[in-house]
Design a protein around this nucleic acid. Structure first.
Lengths: 216, 216
DNA sequence: TGTACATCAGTGAACGCGCGTTCACTGATGTAC
DNA sequence: TGTACATCAGTGAACGCGCGTTCACTGATGTAC
């Protein structure tokens, strides 16, 4: 599995041709097997079949490599959430629940990305691009929250930002406590999906949703 | 700060006398400075002022050291939650909110313990004692949820376990996304305490609480 | 109370290992003319 | 189209370092009698 680019002939010879990409994939593989702290430059290079000095042509250090993984992860995450939300079609509440399931599905099927994004301790402060990517993903949740809140009568509307943060926190909490296959995760008698769906429904009822009787 | 036991004269001479304790403190210090993956046997020994072989008299390996830290952390955590809950005095809803604040306070003031308990990847499967300690802490939340749920009319009671899991997930989500001083944490325009309190209140309202008009 | 002995807890030197990082280098690729 | 040259991307050898782990050892402590 060394030359696992999606297509095209395996590159050969002196120049790898696709090393940056391959190193990111190697990092994902290492995160999946040993956690974010198990990622080393040397082993990523070995995985890619190049000399240990080669990664320095593409990343300043290990942190920059991990930041790239997280950056890519946020992009995929945002796309997955946006696809599930689908602009609130056909109906915001159902779309919102669908987005919640997409959140957990991402955490479950891409634990390495999720880990790099939220648990690797990549500093957001000195990486504007990464911060923007994270906010892009959160923006999907926030937009969805705005649509939901807009269904409430104007005098009783909570801040959409707060609603988005609550839902994000619950989704992240469930994903991180119960949502992954790691040994060490707590076992509970309901699936993460059920747990999140029920939690969000209770929460939204607390907000007064659904308030429009025309909506099922 | 090498001989920082709480009291008593600094031990001297060939036998340290308090090494196990000191190694655990060293591990906490290292977690606080570098995260769980920054804990090494060698550096813990150096911190304690003993030879690198000494820790092997007390812990089989690094994982056993971290498991001990987590174990102790769960004990402190359970005590802090139980103290805040205070058997639901004077009134379950207020006590519940107090417990929520205690949760976040623990995560904020003892980030090293919190990290060892929830993020270090210490495997719960092969450590029955640790699992029991974790369940002990969760038991406090669960008991509190039972008391709250009992205030609802019998026909509309949700499972207390589910309620406890939802609240735990939200508290953990908030603590882990916004609740600590690390660089890399998201900044939001409300404090974690406010966010959790508001979230729990909305959630409980969704359950139908407070349902007893005699309770303020 | 004293003595002999077993056990405990820490020593310090040693080892192999993998990692991060640097360096002068070189093969391959792209481009100006 | 061909040639000269600059630039790019990877080499491979080397280094210092800290870690995990083992080992025979030894100082200190506890206990049987």
């Amino acid at each position: 599995m060394k030359w696992n680019q999606d297509d095209g002939p395996p590159p050969r010879g002196y120049h790898h041709g696709n090393l940056k990409e391959t190193l990111i994939r190697a990092a994902l593989d290492l995160i999946a097997r040993k956690g974010p702290s198990g990622v080393t430059f040397a082993e990523a290079a070995r995985f890619a079949g190049v000399s240990p000095a080669a990664p320095y042509r593409h990343f300043r250090d290990r942190d920059e490599l991990l930041a790239n993984v997280a950056l890519r992860g946020f992009g995929l995450f945002e796309a997955a959430l946006a696809r599930a939300w689908d602009d609130g079609q056909p109906e915001p509440l159902a779309a919102f629940e669908r987005m919640g399931r997409a959140y957990l599905e991402f955490a479950r099927t891409e634990p390495a990305y999720y880990s790099a994004m939220f648990e690797a301790g990549v500093p957001l402060d000195d990486n504007q691009e990464l911060r923007a990517a994270g906010e892009g993903a959160f923006g999907v949740i926030r937009t969805a929250a705005e649509r939901l809140v807009a269904q409430l009568p104007p005098q009783g509307r909570p801040p959409a930002l707060m609603v988005a943060l609550h839902v994000w926190a619950m989704a992240h909490g469930i994903a991180s406590l119960f949502g992954r296959g790691d040994a060490g995760r707590r076992k509970v008698p309901m699936s993460p999906d059920e747990l999140l769906e029920a939690g969000v429904l209770v929460y939204l009822r607390g907000l007064g949703l659904p308030s429009d009787p025309a909506v099922t």
